[in-house]
């Protein structure tokens, strides 16, 4: 669906303050995939999301959406508008309308839909993020923080994007909030969006929810692949100063002590199962 070929991006290009953000990045998202993107602050993750959604134009390289090169278009956002939805970090800070429903309608309205169509799309988005009709006429400033974030995500979902990109959707949430958010994303992916890409700092979140992982380091792709493939390279990740899930570390330690485990183990349940089998088997 989205394909980045040899993308480079430099902030303040051709000035003394030039800062390279992306170097020769090749990355593609296919239909049905859920990608987790990890890396340090300043590794280029956020720039990557903005390039994928057409907000930034790469300095060189191609961005293909369904095979069409959007970098050739004058206004990349206009071409991608609605097809790639981007939810920023702390999206609740962008709410501005007097009612929840009006705020969610903002995106579809900008795309030129009629009021009825906007309302319909907004209501569908509200259902997908798990907000019932009673929220429609509330002010987005008098609901709780978690609900605000849902409203903000609904504001992007209402544009019916094929690909939904989220920059650190779980920032500031407690464990229950985080679980609910991922449950909601699963729901959105099942019913509306074909693919989801989310940026995260937490390896545990990525291990739990993504099926593919892209690891960014210093503006370059460090490694990518399925969750198992990536976490197998724990040495590479740790060298880049990234954590691996605690369970993976536990198994790695046991391997060091001479015990053998055949596959990559990411969850506590799998680990307990594997250790138990070794003890009994």
């Amino acid at each position: 669906m989205i394909e980045l070929i040899d993308v480079n991006y430099t902030y303040e290009d051709k000035t003394p303050d030039a800062a390279v953000a992306l170097k020769n990045v090749c990355f593609s998202v296919k239909e049905g995939e859920t990608w987790g993107v990890i890396g340090h602050t300043g590794s280029g993750k956020s720039t990557l999301t903005e390039i994928m959604s057409g907000l930034l134009k790469p300095c060189s390289g191609k961005v293909l959406f369904n095979g069409v090169d959007v970098t050739k278009e004058k206004n990349a956002t206009a071409v991608l508008k609605g097809k790639v939805g981007l939810v920023f970090q702390y999206p609740e800070h962008q709410l501005f309308e007097e009612s929840v429903i009006k705020d969610i309608c903002f995106g579809p309205k900008n795309m030129g839909f009629s009021s009825e169509e906007c309302l319909e799309k907004a209501r569908q988005a509200m259902r997908l993020v798990g907000l019932d009709e009673s929220y429609e006429n509330l002010s987005p400033f008098e609901i709780s923080g978690g609900e605000k974030r849902r409203v903000a995500i609904a504001g992007v979902v209402a544009m019916n994007p094929d690909v939904l990109i989220l920059d650190e959707p779980t920032a500031g949430l407690d464990p229950v909030g985080r679980d609910m958010l991922f449950e909601m994303l699963g729901n959105i992916k099942g019913k509306l969006c074909k693919s989801i890409v989310f940026v995260s700092h937490s390896m545990d979140d990525v291990a739990l929810f993504a099926d593919k992982v892209l690891v960014m380091n210093d503006g370059k792709v460090l490694t990518m692949g399925t969750v198992n493939e990536v976490f197998e390279k724990s040495a590479l990740l740790e060298a880049a100063g990234l954590d691996v899930p605690q369970v993976t570390r536990l198994i790695a330690r046991l391997k060091e002590k001479g015990h053998e485990f055949d596959s990559v183990i990411l969850t506590a349940e799998d680990a307990a199962e594997a250790i138990y089998n070794k003890l009994k088997g």
Partner: peptide, 30 residues
């Protein structure tokens, strides 16, 4: 997560003692 692993093992009837919070001590016990 390691505390969860230890707890699951206990539930399965494995005799593992102590309160595990860190990877190192948990790996040693196992």
């Amino acid at each position: 997560q390691v505390t969860r692993v230890v707890n699951l093992l206990k539930k399965k009837g494995v005799d593992i003692k102590g309160e595990m919070l860190r990877t190192k001590e948990c790996a040693e016990a196992i």
